[in-house]
């Protein structure tokens, strides 16, 4: 089937199998390998991207379901080469080690701060509770998001 998916502001028209998962479309068809897959069962959140402005686990979404919709991935997080405060926060607060969960975590963090510019640590923990990090024990991810909240120069 043919799909038209707007990814990071660009419309992509592709012929795909209906069963193609969105994460594989992004990674294998479009070469956007910043988003990862980690569990296959919607538990780990390494694959989180935005679908029509809402974070979603893209290993559990068919590309067909994204037809006519907008997708935003980690590759679109910076603003004209300038790192998003969330990205800066993760680098500043050692919010990552292996870097595998990081893109998904940052996409959720960006969404959280867009909707709650001044979250508590507890709210950050709640927001990322569907995403697994095996390296940080979450401590520095929470600090990174709080750092970003503090250093926001206006939302996206």
């Amino acid at each position: 089937m043919q799909v038209n998916v707007t990814v990071n502001g660009t419309v992509f028209t592709r012929e795909v199998e209906p069963r193609l998962l969105l994460i594989h479309f992004l990674r294998d068809e479009l070469g956007l390998t910043g988003s990862h897959w980690g569990c296959d069962t919607s538990n780990c959140g390494a694959c989180v991207v935005w679908l029509d402005d809402v974070p979603v686990k893209s290993c559990t979404v068919l590309t067909a379901m994204a037809d006519g919709r907008r997708v935003r991935t980690v590759e679109d997080l910076d603003r004209g080469g300038q790192l998003d405060p969330v990205q800066q926060g993760f680098a500043e607060c050692h919010g990552l080690q292996c870097g595998f969960c990081t893109p998904g975590m940052m996409m959720t963090a960006r969404w959280l701060l867009d909707h709650n510019p001044d979250p508590s640590a507890e709210q950050v923990r709640e927001a990322i509770s569907g995403q697994v990090c095996r390296c940080t024990g979450y401590e520095n991810i929470v600090r990174s998001v709080l750092w970003a909240a503090k250093h926001e120069g206006g939302g996206t």
């Binding site: 390998t33 910043g34 988003s35 590759e75 997080l77 993760f90 990081t102 893109p103």
Partner: peptide
Amino acid sequence: FVRGKGHF
């Protein structure tokens, strides 16, 4: 890594 440019 923060740019999604890790290479796995």
